[in-house]
Amino acid sequence: MTTTVATTSIRTEERASLLGRVLGSPLARLIARRILIATPLLLAISILVFAMLEAIPGDPARNQAGMDATEEQVEAVRKQMGLDRPAVERYLTWLGGFVTGNLGRSSVSEQPVTSLLAERMPVTIELVALAFLVSLAIAIPVALLAARKPGGVFDRVVMVISMTLLAVPNYVMALLLVLVFAVTLRSLPAIGYVSLDDGLLANLRSVTLPVLALAIPLACFYARFLRGDLVEQMNSADYVETARAKGVTPWKVLWGHAFRNSSFGLLTLVGLNIGGLVGGTVIVEQIFSMPGLGVLMLQGVMSRDTAVVQICVFIFAAVAVLANLVVDVMYAVLDPRIRYGHR
């Protein structure tokens, strides 16, 4: 039999045509189509954010000039801030600035908004990324173990606990964690963020509680979803029956076959959640005094710092849109059914 040779030569052939395939591939078309849909959506979002900020009562110029400024001083500030120009013009200016990376200055700290973002975004990204990792690291093994014996003791305990924890809002979870780990056990800091520059361990210690506050409800959600999907696959999927008929062990059927299929649904769910999770960081960052995007937005809202709020709110919405785009594309890359242009 010379099939080894034959199969390798096919692989080389495949590689040679890879570039051609990628450019004209359904995947490339899919990405293009998704971007085509996302762009106007992002534009509409930015317009809506702009309009909402316009509608917030109060005069930013007067705010900026101070309580006891004269009418002329306020007018001067207004002119300086460009607020005397029509709204459409100001929006287009903002958009132009956004494209060229000039987002104006914070009216509170006078810092360029871009440098504020550069400071704050890594914190939020770290929180969100760790929260996802932790939640999946908990949810996947728990769901697999629970689905191994549906209706068994472990399964029931997991279902009850996850149902309960799922009903705990993240701000309550945050306070409970503080109560237990910071107040009672005094083992972890309650507030404050330690930058990575000051050491990985200190950094991780400082984000442990906020990450857990975000990750625990999420883990419950994923565990329940995954467990349900796994049990469904194990009970009724024909390919599971085929695997059993091959003599594959139940555990291998579960993770090698059912989980493989369920993971696509899980991936979609994660994508849909990213927006919500990033939104959820607002309140958790506030509780733990994390200098992230959420706190930046809240401070901006309180102090009528339009330039800051505008970009923060836009980023929150854009992340949700882009996350869905990325998941669609990842799905296409990972799922052979879509990868090869079917469906």
């Binding site: 106007p40 959506l41 509409a44 979002i45 809506l48 954010v49 909402m52 900020l53 509608a55 917030i56 009562p57 927006g275 919500g276 990033v278 939104g279 959820g280 607002v282 309140i283 937005m297 809240l298 809202v301 709020v309 709110v313 929150f316 919405a317 854009a318 949700a320 849109v321």
Partner: peptide
């Protein structure tokens, strides 16, 4: 539906914060 997509894109808390600010 496209108009609703714009609203749905916002994280619920962020959207409500923005609107609550407008309304008081």
């Amino acid at each position: 539906m496209r108009a609703l997509d714009v609203l749905i894109a916002f994280p619920s808390l962020v959207l409500t914060i923005a609107i609550a600010q407008i309304l008081g």
